[in-house]
Structures are given as C-alpha cells and as structure tokens.
Design a protein around this nucleic acid. Structure first.
Lengths: 239, 239
DNA sequence: GACCATCTTGACCATTTGGTCAAGATAGCA
DNA sequence: TGCTATCTTGACCAAATGGTCAAGATGGTC
C-alpha cells in the first residue's frame, strides 16, 4: 500500500522498442549461470539509467537535462537509452515513480498508538536521513513541484492526500487526548517537510551561509537535532 | 546596505546594444511632457521585461524558459528583448538581483533591542507575506538554489552570510540573556526560511493535499499562525 | 548449429531556440 | 527642419537536442 509502483511494473511501463511482450520474464528458475542473462542486462541497464537520470534531472532540471548527458553518465550510447525509455518524458516519469514511493514510506512511524515524541522524532530522523542519503531524489521532486507538478499532480491529490489525511487524524487524536499541544496538523506536516527537505534541496545555500564547502554528517545531525527540538517544544513535549 | 543593487545600476549592467553611454540619463529636469520620453520608454520596457521574465523563469526554470515566451508575455518582439538584455543569462541575472534585495529586507525586525516574540513573529509574517505576494520571485530563487546556485553563489557566501552571521549573534544574545530557550541560531533561520518559503515554492503540493485548487489568503494566514506558534513555543516564548 | 528475440550503436534528421542583422521608425535637440 | 541617438522588428542563422533508423552483435533455446 505504501509502494506506489513496484520496480518491475515501473520498468514495464517504460519499455523500449522490442521488449518481451506477453508473459515474458516468467518467475521460473533464473538462468543457471550468474553471467549477464537477458533479464539481468535489462535490469542493470535500467537501474544504471535511472540512477544517472536522477542525478542529471536533479542538477539540471527536466528541460536542462539532456538525454545525451544521462546516457554518458550511465555509460551507454544515447540510442541505447532510448531503447529502454522511449522518451525523455517517460524516463522522467520512471525516475519520479521511484521517488514517490520513497516519499510515502517515511511516515511509517506516525501511528495513533505511538508515543508522540518518539514518533515525531523518528519521522524527523527519517526525513533528514532521506535528505542526506538521497539528495538527488529530493531535488528532482522539489523541481517537479516548483514547476507546478505537471507529472505528479494526480499523485499529490490522490495517494499523498489520502496518506496525509490519515496521518492528520492521528495528530488530531493526540491533540484531543491532550498528548500534544493544539496545532493545525496539515500545516505541521508542511513545516516538517519543508524543514527537513530544505537540507537536501537548498544544501548549497545552507553550506554557503555556514561557511562550508559542503554539508557533512555533523551538519545533518545538528540540523535534525534543531528541527526535532523546535517541533517537540512547539508541541509542548519533553525534549 | 540592504539593497544589493539599485534599480538604475542593475539596468545599467544589462544594457542593450546602443544605450546611453557615458553620463547619459542625467538627473536633470524630466522632459516637460508626460508622454513617452526615451527614458520612460527604457524604464517601462525594462520593467515589463523583468516582470515577464520572473514569471516565466519561475514556472519553467532557466533552461525551460524561452526568450520568445518572455518577449511575448512582455508584449514585445523578441529582438526588442535582446536589445535591452543582450543574453538570456544577463536577463536572468537581472531578475535575480531584484530578488536578492527583497530577500535581505525581511530580516529588518531581528534586532537585539526588540522583544524576541515580536521580532520573530514579525519576521515570519514578513516572509509569509513575501511568499504570498511574490511567489514567482521565491520560485526563481528556489530554482536557482536547487541547481547549485551557479549565479548567486557569491551572494550566498558574501552578503547573505554576513547578514545571517549578524542576526545569529542577535539570537545568541537573546539566548544568553535567557530571553529565549537555547537553539542553534543558524538552523533556526534555515527552518524559518524553509517553513515560510515552502508556501510559495511548493504551493501546488500544499494546495493538492488541502484539497484546494489554489491557496487563498486564509490558507496563508493559517500557515503563518501555525509556523509562528510552533517557533515561539519552540523557543519557549509566550504565544 | 540454426533460429529468434533482445540488445547495441554510428549515422542521421527535424525542430527548437538563443542570438544577429540591417533597415526603418521615433524622440530629442539645435 | 535637419541631424543624431535610441528604439523597433521581420527575416535569418548556427548550434543543440530529442528522437529515429537500420545494420550488426549477442544471449537463449531447440
């Protein structure tokens, strides 16, 4: 329920010119040898392309990214990239699909039974870890939103809205039970997202203001600590 | 000291092919008639182009924006745009210069003598107002940061860093004086920026999650109230 | 080994787009 | 009324880029 699109089906959607039609890629025993089987080739190439694409889309934006650069970064010729992903748009969608799944996962800790302080702290940690370890993913998503979310509007108003509605109810429950101070649950989430993702999306600004070349693990630790402190105190919880 | 570049000098930097060299545009008496003088023409056209460019850069990004679209939106032919701004890059820089000035202004309320709660609340209001009234500006800036700030890296590590160093000292003073609870002043600012700008930069996400078509004034009010509440409580201040 | 589906790649093309040019229009001034 | 500097614009160009093609290579299977 959390994973939007499974890897296999995502790849399926973006298949190239002559991919296995029908019920190819059966679940049967994998080829005995561990050398490049057809299946492995496709998997590896798709993965390599997606990784390269995420990086290039993150740093250049959709329009600024060129399929040539993505192909080079993936270590393959451009026509080969277009074999796996017919169009730049399709490749972009595939990259986004990966990211959306990630995005939803982080809320796992927000459940009614949890201790609010623990749950929120864990959520902040998770989002902050995501900013540290997957900055490109965060940037691609940010870029998409910045330009009006043409490709993920449906997701935002659908799966994401439902998830947040859900989690907002949990927060409201905590408020009603007097476990945290009153706050608008939706805007609480918006602030949490903003405060954590800013360290991925706008890292260069933060680094520059801190007088560093790049953000290091200690910066992220300190950031997470600060955000958690502000939020927990902001909800009148023991820090 | 707050305004980075004054309008006049900014225009100067981006002059087109054959603009008044030397000490043109003297401060002397303006042309008697209030009809289109040469000076007025330039001013109006530059302003119209900058406005159009801000909107297009905001919605399309730098690479996605075309000078043709900007020109159309400004109501002039493309070569005319290139007469005032030699290159797309120069136009982009001019748009950014405008934005950077705006950016710095908002911190005015953060001064040692102020009441922390008032000062912070006012700062949040100011940033939130900026998100509501100048969403395009915020988005252009966000986009620039997202892509590594190629055009404003100098500003970030220079004027902005100095300003924040300054304001961080004010915050530290408040902490030392026991007027607010301890917090990392830099990260406090990062959270404040993120929490307020998110309403401009990622408005479509917030609107979608709230189940609205667009964010209205009441949404911004509620957002500002929530952010202020969280932050003030987070610093153990009376809300 | 032969046949097929999948994968690879150099060469190529149509479109988009930033930017130019040169001729003409317009304001300001003596 | 000329004369100059500034402004305007249709036509045009070179480069970049998304995407295609067709021929060849490679793994899988009988």
């Amino acid at each position: 329920m959390v994973k939007m699109v499974k890897r296999a089906s995502r790849a399926e959607l973006s298949l190239g010119r002559g991919p296995a039609k029908g019920r190819a890629r059966r679940a049967g025993p994998p080829p005995a040898n561990n050398r490049a089987s057809k299946q492995t080739i496709r998997c590896e190439n798709v993965a390599r392309i997606l990784e390269a694409a995420e990086a290039v889309f993150a740093t250049k934006g959709f329009s600024g990214a060129t399929t040539a650069e993505i192909a080079t970064r993936a270590g393959i010729p451009k026509p080969n990239l277009h074999y796996y992903f017919r169009t730049k748009q399709a490749l972009y969608r595939a990259v986004l699909d990966d990211i959306l799944a990630l995005w939803l996962d982080a809320t796992a800790s927000i459940v009614a039974e949890a201790e609010p302080a623990d749950a929120l702290r864990r959520y902040i940690e998770a989002k902050m870890a995501y900013s540290r370890t997957r900055p490109f993913a965060s940037k691609v998503f940010a870029n998409e939103l910045l330009h009006g979310a043409p490709a993920v509007k449906g997701f935002l108003g659908g799966a994401m809205k439902r998830l947040v509605d859900d989690k907002a109810k949990v927060i409201e429950g905590w408020i009603t039970a007097g476990r945290i101070a009153p706050i608008d649950p939706y805007h609480l989430f918006f602030v949490l997202w903003a405060a954590t993702q800013t360290y991925a999306d706008f890292d260069c600004q933060i680094a520059a203001v801190l007088g560093k070349k790049k953000l290091g693990p200690t910066d992220f630790d300190r950031a997470g600590e600060t955000v958690a402190t502000l939020i927990l105190r902001g909800l009148r919880l023991k820090v």
